[in-house]
Structures are given as structure tokens and as C-alpha cells.
């Protein structure tokens, strides 16, 4: 192994990968959320379909899509490797343990939360991404493939809405720990800024996930 692979396979190196990809994925969430806000526009989905068509064909977006996939893959792969390593670091557990006395539940269950999010991601990709890219969609009044109608149909199903809401709760907890944790891993702490980073991360996690969860709920109850 040379210095580069050694660096990124060390415990800190892998955490660096986790933090950088994690923050990158956070930025993706913001873009995704802003775009999806088109769903709330009361125009029968015309604006949303323009947006989804743009996302499907713009070369910059398509390039970033590859980066995004890599970001997910590295985040998931390193999470898997680290979890395995961390589990083998304590082969015999405690008979009696009270971690709730010293740490938050979410911080201790990032793997579980991540897995929930991963399962959701697969469902989500299959239902929307796959159908938008490879499926047969009808054409809307603006001449764009009508993804909006797919969204509307899906979010009319109670169990589908439930999956979304649960996944967004999981994501919120994942981010509450992950956001500020990424800064700690990168060594970006200072008593002047860290309190702000922590509150910002908290607000960010809650608001972004609320935003995403609002969509299925809106369709289910109001459309």
C-alpha cells in the first residue's frame, strides 16, 4: 500500500471519507429539496415536469450524477467497513450496559439509520428515478414526460407515504449526528464556531427532512 491508500484505509482516513461524502450528500439534499418544491406549485405538475426533464438531460447534472453515485458508494462502502471493524473491536459485549447515560441514541445507531435510508433509497430510485429515465411516461400539456402523475399516484397510497415519513425521520436523526460529526472529523472545531455549527446542523436536519416529508403528506391529504 502506498501512502495514499494507507491514509484512506486508516480509521481516521475512512472517517474523512465518511465526512466529506456525507457533507456532499447534504448539499445534494438541498438541491433535491429545492427542485422538488415545484410539486407544491398549483399548476398540475407542469413546472415539476420541466424540472425533472432538465435534471434528466442537462450535461452538468448528468456528470454530477456520477459524482453523486460515487459519493453514495464510498459513503456506504466505508460505513460497511467501519462497522465491521468496530464490531470486531469488541467481540464480547457487556452483559449490562447503559450507553444512554453517556451518548445520544442517534449517534450510536448511525448504521441502523443508514440502512433504513438505504432501503428507502432503493424503493425511491426504483419508483421515480428508474421510471423517469427508463420507463414509459405520458406527455404532459407542456410537452414534457409527466413524472408528476407518478408522484401523485404513489403518494395516494397510505403505506407508501408511511415509508417516506419513516425514512425521513431516520434521515433527520442520521443528519443530526452526521452533520456536526463531519466537522469534528475534519477537525473543524473551535469554541467560537462549533456551537453555531451544531445548532445549524440541527436546524438543517429537521427542516430538510420536514420539507421532504411534507410532500407525500401534502399529496395524501390535500390532492
Amino acid at each position: 500500500m502506498n501512502w495514499f491508500t494507507k491514509t484512506f484505509s486508516s480509521t481516521i482516513g475512512r472517517k474523512l471519507v465518511m465526512s466529506i461524502t456525507g457533507l456532499f450528500l447534504c448539499s445534494f439534499l438541498v438541491v433535491h429539496l429545492i427542485g422538488n418544491l415545484q410539486l407544491f406549485k398549483d399548476d398540475g405538475g407542469l413546472a415539476f415536469n420541466v424540472y425533472s426533464e432538465f435534471m434528466g438531460h442537462n450535461p452538468i447534472i448528468r456528470t454530477m450524477e456520477i459524482v453523486l453515485v460515487l459519493g453514495f458508494l464510498f459513503h456506504i462502502y466505508d460505513a460497511f467497513v467501519l462497522t465491521r471493524r468496530n464490531q470486531s473491536a469488541r467481540p464480547i459485549g457487556y452483559a449490562n450496559s447503559h450507553p444512554e447515560e453517556n451518548s445520544n441514541w442517534s449517534s450510536r445507531n448511525m448504521g441502523l439509520l443508514g440502512t433504513v435510508i438505504l432501503v428507502f433509497l432503493i424503493i425511491h430510485l426504483y419508483n421515480f428515478f428508474w421510471r423517469a429515465r427508463f420507463g414509459e411516461l405520458s406527455i404532459d400539456a407542456g410537452g414534457n414526460p409527466d413524472l408528476y402523475i407518478v408522484v401523485k399516484e404513489s403518494f395516494g397510497l397510505w403505506w407508501y407515504v408511511a415509508i417516506y415519513v419513516i425514512a425521513m425521520i431516520a434521515l433527520a436523526y442520521h443528519l443530526i449526528h452526521g452533520f456536526q460529526s463531519a466537522f469534528q472529523t475534519l477537525g473543524l472545531t473551535h469554541k467560537k464556531y462549533t456551537p453555531f455549527i451544531k445548532s445549524f446542523g440541527y436546524a438543517f436536519s429537521v427542516l430538510v427532512c420536514l420539507g421532504f416529508a411534507a410532500m407525500p403528506l401534502y399529496f395524501f391529504f390535500f390532492e
Binding site: 480509521t11 472517517k15 473491536a89 453517556n102 451518548s103 445520544n104 449517534s107 448511525m110 469534528q184 472529523t185
Partner: peptide
């Protein structure tokens, strides 16, 4: 064979 830090904070607590 120690594990990696996941910034849980149990150690400092």
C-alpha cells in the same frame, strides 16, 4: 485492533 471514532462522545462523558 481498536475501533474507529464515530464521534459519539461516550468516551469524554
Amino acid at each position: 485492533g481498536f475501533g474507529a471514532c464515530s464521534n459519539i462522545g461516550a468516551c469524554a462523558a
